[in-house]
Design a protein around this nucleic acid. Structure first.
Lengths: 107, 107
DNA sequence: CAGCATCCGCGAGGATACTG
DNA sequence: CAGTATCCTCGCGGATGCTG
């Protein structure tokens, strides 16, 4: 982490990019709950306290297009869909653990 | 990281708390630039590409009251103030590094 | 059960100008 | 040089209701 002293315009620290994938009120928790395996929409919603259906729906779609999770539609009636972490999503584990450790230490 | 299957209401993952300290468009970069030592307001502003004076001012004040950094006023004319990381601020380093590593790996 | 459409409040962050 | 005050925009996330 070395840097000079001249003015910078477009520069940004690499951590920022990671933050983009983790910011969003529900994203960390979604990842957390999917760490153990796939969950259906409503199962996920029950685990997150108080997410709106619409909001969770949006969040999942965004995370899917970010490549963090994959959506599986069983094409059944009544509908059945589940969500699971992709490899990319799982690879965030160390990051979340570092954050958890910091939060833990901070008291 | 073990958890059951019953409905949860108030639960949240510990990483979220850490996120609160790091979210904010400029916070990660402020921490990054202060890692090497104190910087004066304008020096900091030059390093962050395109922050508004007002926005940086607000950001710094918030981070100060979060205990992440400390502000030192030299009481001179013209004004001279510099900002440096507190111990708490510096302790975020591993977290930022984990995030940086992930961003790095993600291509 | 899963998802979309519509409407809305609120706060983060930017533009600009002024002060000591 | 550092900080504050005012005004404004934009998008996140919530509330509610409808559909297959």
């Amino acid at each position: 982490m070395a840097h000079d002293e001249s003015p910078h315009d477009g520069w940004h620290c690499p951590a920022e990019r990671t933050l983009e994938f983790l910011s969003g009120k529900w994203r960390p928790m979604v990842i957390y709950w999917l760490m153990d395996g796939p969950l259906r929409f409503n199962a996920l919603q029950r685990r997150l306290g108080g997410v709106t259906h619409r909001t969770l729906s949006k969040t999942l779609k965004e995370m899917e297009s970010d490549g963090l999770l994959s959506r599986r539609d069983y094409g059944e009636i009544p509908p059945r869909v589940d969500y699971s972490l992709t490899e990319k999503g799982r690879s965030l584990r160390p990051v979340l653990e570092a954050m958890a450790a910091w939060a833990e230490a901070g008291r």
